[in-house]
């Protein structure tokens, strides 16, 4: 019998009072993969992850982690799973390496601390109390705590939030290395780039549902290879997207982003670009920028939901 998927979520429903945080979400995580759950704040990512971690009991649907029920089989599952919370998770007065050593002491075969301290750049702050660590240092310590017990499966919630770009890349390298050594990783993120660079499989999530799934390449190729992005100096007059869509014809899709910008997807090429340019002149809008580039997951998300991934636009965090 083949091993069950690392994670299998079927029709998960989670509510907080009158708010439905997760609304019939289904996803699967293959063993050995890095799988990203990508969506804006408030999409239900953290709630889904915490249900997989056994913190919450599903109100509807089922969750299986390594073939087990994360609530009922919690004790059997916990040593096999590494968890990185979105924030906190340490005493305020504990020193960074002291905390890591403590978590290591709870496991049977922990990784050598020196290795993690070096790889995650924690040496510089090893004796600093947790409350005085920067946000990025707290994140790195959180990741170290999640991997130190040599888990089979890693749940990381917004692993690189608050990290500078160089440290973010170091973190991605570590996650890739873990994957190479056989660790499955499930990560939530609202950074399109993180999902695109790191994940084998991306589940785009919005309003508590998966709106699209696939490899980053499959998702971005699915709607044509390129994207044209138009940003204008004054807000668009009413009816602008419809007018542009009419000018371009049925093969392309016009997606309004906000009152200053829109995106054109589909078989966009140089001739499409000239049509858009001509339309600007005819319609009387002045481009701030008009660019053509490869399609991103951000564009896919916009196409699927009509919303952007950017934080601050997606309501409160779940």
């Amino acid at each position: 019998m083949p091993a069950p998927p690392a994670v299998q979520v079927s029709d998960l429903v989670m509510r907080y009072g009158a708010t439905t945080a997760v609304d019939g979400l289904s996803l699967e995580v293959a063993r050995g993969s890095i799988t990203a759950v990508l969506g804006p704040n408030g999409a239900g990512k953290t709630t889904t992850l915490e249900t997989c971690e056994g913190y919450r009991r599903p109100q509807g649907g089922t969750v299986r982690v390594l073939g087990l029920d994360p609530v009922r089989d919690r004790r059997a599952l916990l040593p096999r799973v590494g968890v990185m919370l979105q924030g906190g998770g340490a005493w305020s007065g504990v020193r960074a390496v002291e905390m890591l050593r403590h978590v290591a002491a709870l496991h049977a075969h922990p990784l050598p601390l020196d290795l993690l301290v070096e790889r995650l750049g924690l040496a510089e702050c090893g004796r600093t109390p947790y409350r005085r660590l920067s946000g990025g240092q707290q994140q790195r310590l959180g990741l170290a705590m999640a991997v130190v017990g040599r888990p089979e499966l890693l749940f990381v919630d917004e692993p690189t939030a608050g990290m500078d770009p160089a440290v973010r890349r170091t973190t991605w390298d570590l996650l890739r290395e873990l994957q190479h050594d056989g660790v499955t990783t499930v990560l939530t993120t609202h950074y399109m780039e993180e999902a695109e660079r790191l994940a084998d499989l991306v589940h785009l999530v919005d309003h508590g549902r998966v709106v699209a799934s696939g490899s980053p390449l499959a998702l971005t190729r699915g709607r044509g290879d390129a994207t044209i992005r138009l940003v204008v100096t004054e807000p668009f007059p009413a009816g602008a997207p419809q007018s542009l869509a009419a000018a371009l014809g049925a093969a392309t899709e016009v997606l309004p982003v906000d009152e200053y910008s829109l995106v054109v997807t589909g078989p966009a090429d140089a001739s499409t670009l000239s049509v858009v340019s001509a339309w600007c002149e005819d319609f009387g809008v002045v481009p701030e920028s008009l660019t053509m580039g490869r399609m991103t997951l951000e564009d896919v998300f916009l196409a699927e939901t009509g919303r952007t991934l950017a934080p601050g636009e997606g309501g409160h965090a779940a």
Binding site: R80, H107, L111, E177, G182
Partner: peptide, 14 residues
Amino acid sequence: TGADGTFAPRPGAA
């Protein structure tokens, strides 16, 4: 990354 099995899973509670 020079991965060499350093992080190979070996879970267990102390």
